[in-house]
């Protein structure tokens, strides 16, 4: 078994870009401490590469040719595409893992059709997690995207199948691999409603996620999610893929709806890898 860590975390650009505007600085710092703990857990796992399952925001993929799933097989990436002063993250190069990612892609393709890309520009959806999890940008990254932006979107049961395929792929190679899913739960980002959070919906979703209850997780539909959790709620696909990849119970390490200036319920969790995925 070569998957050594699985977790989830939020990626909203405000987490770094609007840190200076936060009034509840104690809660903000508690969140940052949880992210730093996640960094240490990944480091302690001995991971040689980190897969980031993200929900990008038109940094690479557009409606002219939108893949439902894509894996980065490049040797180097760059980011953020956004104004660095706005995101408060400097533009940088990030190492990839071309050979490993190519082998993983071949294995995933045995059960799930995926696109691949040797070029990839990171937006906040990946750069914010990396800022906290590999601040020196010295861990090879394998970016993965699930289209959560440009409908029609992949059904949830396919996100589950993708997570399972990724786990099988990780377990087929000798390298130690960590994987994180990054997205939001209920949120209405990039609208005038930015900061709106449905905490009740979030906690119900997180309960299902931590129990790794497949049927309950896959019972959401996008019409209900849009109504109750906003268009940002479509990003639950990344969390569901991680649940499938881990095959184990989750441990919610941090959640708060008390930082709406970040425009998302801030979340950090990890999963056990005990069960056979």
């Amino acid at each position: 078994m070569s998957l050594v860590y699985a977790g989830v975390l939020s990626h909203a650009p405000g987490i770094t870009g609007r840190a200076h505007l936060v009034e509840n600085t104690a809660k903000r710092d508690e969140f940052y401490a949880a992210l730093d703990k996640q960094r240490r857990e990944i480091q302690d796992s001995g991971a040689e590469a980190l897969i980031v399952i993200a929900a990008e925001h038109f940094a690479n993929f557009f409606m002219n040719n939108m893949p439902a799933y894509c894996i980065g097989i490049g040797s180097q990436y760059e980011g953020p595409i956004e104004d660095p002063d706005w995101l408060k993250i400097s533009r940088t190069k990030v190492p990839g893992a071309a050979d490993l990612a190519t082998r993983l892609t071949r294995e995933v393709m045995k059960t799930v059709d995926v696109a691949y890309a040797e070029e990839w520009k990171f937006d906040h959806g990946i750069m914010v997690p990396l800022h906290f999890l590999t601040p020196e940008y010295d861990l090879p990254i394998i970016p993965v995207n699930i289209n959560c932006q440009g409908p029609p979107l992949t059904p949830l049961h396919r996100a589950w199948a993708f997570g399972k395929a990724l786990r099988r792929a990780c377990d087929s190679v000798p390298e130690k691999i960590a994987v994180v899913g990054t997205g939001g739960i209920s949120h209405w980002p990039a609208t005038p409603d930015s900061g709106k959070i449905n905490e009740k919906w979030d906690r119900e979703f997180l309960d299902r996620l931590m129990r790794n209850d497949k049927d309950a997780l896959l019972s959401y539909d996008d019409i209900q999610t849009y109504r109750d959790a906003g268009q940002g709620g479509f990003e639950i696909r990344t969390f569901i893929a991680i649940a499938a990849a881990s095959g184990g119970d989750g441990e919610l390490q941090f959640y708060t709806a008390e930082l709406p200036i970040f425009a998302v319920g801030c979340t950090v969790a990890r999963f056990s890898l005990d069960r056979t995925a």
């Binding site: 505007l21 936060v22 009034e23 409908p151 209405w188 990039a190 609208t191 005038p192 409603d193 930015s194 900061g195 709106k196 959070i197 849009y226 906003g230 268009q231 709406p260 200036i261």
Partner: peptide
């Protein structure tokens, strides 16, 4: 600016990024 756009031009005409919160701010900072 987005709220002012709604006030001037009416509701969002396409896509999934419509304003659903009535134009209020959802943050104490805002």
């Amino acid at each position: 600016l987005m709220r002012e756009g709604i006030a001037k031009h009416g509701p969002v005409r396409a896509g999934v990024y419509a304003m659903t919160g009535g134009g209020e701010s959802f943050t104490v900072e805002g």
